[in-house]
Computed example of a mutant assay.
Amino acid sequence: MTRPKDLDPSSNPRAFLGSELRHARERAGLSQEALGAPLFVSGTFIGQLEAGTRRMHLEYARHFDETLGTEDFFTRNCGALAKSKYPDHFAEAAEAEAVAVSIRQYATLLIPGLLQTKAYAEEVFRAYHPTATQEAIDADVSARLERARLLDDPTTPLLWTVLDEAVLRRMVGGGPVMAEALRHVARLAREHRIIMQVLPFAAGAHAAMDGPLKLMEFEDAPQLSFVEAPDMGKLLDDPATVTRHTLMFNLLQAAALSPKESLALIESVAQDYEHGEQHR
């Protein structure tokens, strides 16, 4: 298995913990497969922990301390790193997203979090939590906008998004909010920061009708797939499943409008929202 490169602990605490795991494992003379076997996880999964693309859960940390003779090092630090500003079902995916070199996603009903504006995000969170305090909503919006700063880097990660046409037609927060949100997506596409396609209603049945899909690639770890449902989400690394999801995304790309056609449609719909026209 390819040896993971050394990672900068100052840039990613989870990567630091993974780097320490690799050093401790190698010092103990264990392979990734041997370390993972008692936990019923693969050597690939251990490699993902070492590369910082997966979160170290407490049960694993305790096993590592016991097996590698590191006293309570991993248990202590695992507990500290477990705190997240994101919901439990999404926290691990958000952390993986932050170190991915490529993200490909299909969005079914709303603009993906990385591409949302402040006003759009506020409307989404208020719909999710109609009785929440404004302070709680503001905290959620702040975390989402902070996560979107991932795109401040001009080239990494490569973000390729396929939006279902329903995303454009569902009016979230009214015409001005939708116009601003779609203009923001269009600007990112025009600046060549993202690749954007729209899957039109005219495409009919397609490969991902069961729901949204996200695929993430990394420099030193296998590809991951993330699937979610209301208050549920799961990172998948099974090679057969990831291969199937990759095929699904490829089929979506083939069925969608070209990036040029998609941009024209997004800007046309944004203009209609600005002029107060309704969409069906």
Rank of each mutant, 00 (worst) to 15 (best):
D6S: 10
D8H: 11
S11H: 14
N12F: 05
R14L: 12
F16K: 14
F16Y: 14
L21Q: 10
A24F: 09
A28E: 09
S31C: 02
Q32W: 04
A34P: 02
L35C: 12
G36M: 09
P38A: 06
L39M: 11
L39C: 03
F45Y: 15
I46G: 13
G47H: 05
L49F: 03
T53C: 08
M56H: 07
H57V: 01
H57Y: 09
L58F: 11
R62C: 02
H63L: 09
D65E: 04
D65L: 06
D65P: 08
E66S: 11
T67K: 14
T70V: 12
T70L: 14
E71Y: 10
D72F: 15
T75C: 07
R76K: 15
N77V: 00
G79C: 03
G79M: 11
A82R: 12
K85T: 08
D88L: 06
H89P: 02
F90W: 12
A91T: 01
A94Y: 07
E97C: 07
E97Y: 08
A98W: 03
S102F: 06
S102P: 00
R104G: 05
Q105P: 01
Q105T: 09
G113L: 11
Y120Q: 08
E122R: 15
E122S: 10
A127L: 12
P130R: 05
T133C: 00
T133V: 00
A136D: 14
D140T: 00
L145D: 08
E146A: 13
E146V: 06
A148H: 04
R149C: 05
L150W: 01
L151Q: 01
D153S: 13
P154E: 12
T155H: 13
T156N: 12
L158W: 03
L159N: 02
W160L: 00
D164E: 06
E165G: 05
L168F: 03
L168W: 02
R170F: 01
V172E: 05
G174N: 07
G174F: 04
G175N: 11
M178D: 01
A179H: 10
E180H: 05
A181H: 09
L188R: 15
L188Y: 07
R190Y: 07
E191F: 04
H192M: 09
R193H: 03
I195A: 15
Q197E: 10
Q197P: 13
P200D: 06
F201D: 13
A205S: 14
H206M: 10
A207T: 01
A208K: 01
L213A: 05
E217T: 13
E217I: 04
E219M: 12
D220S: 12
P222I: 00
P222K: 03
S225K: 01
F226V: 08
F226A: 13
V227E: 15
V227M: 15
E228Q: 10
P230A: 06
D231E: 15
M232D: 12
K234C: 13
K234S: 15
D237T: 03
D237N: 13
R244T: 10
H245R: 09
H245T: 00
H245W: 03
T246L: 12
T246V: 06
F249N: 09
F249T: 04
L252A: 08
Q253T: 09
A255G: 07
L257A: 09
S258I: 04
S258N: 04
P259E: 08
L263S: 04
A264K: 10
I266K: 01
S268I: 05
D272Y: 07
H275G: 10
Q278A: 07
H279S: 03
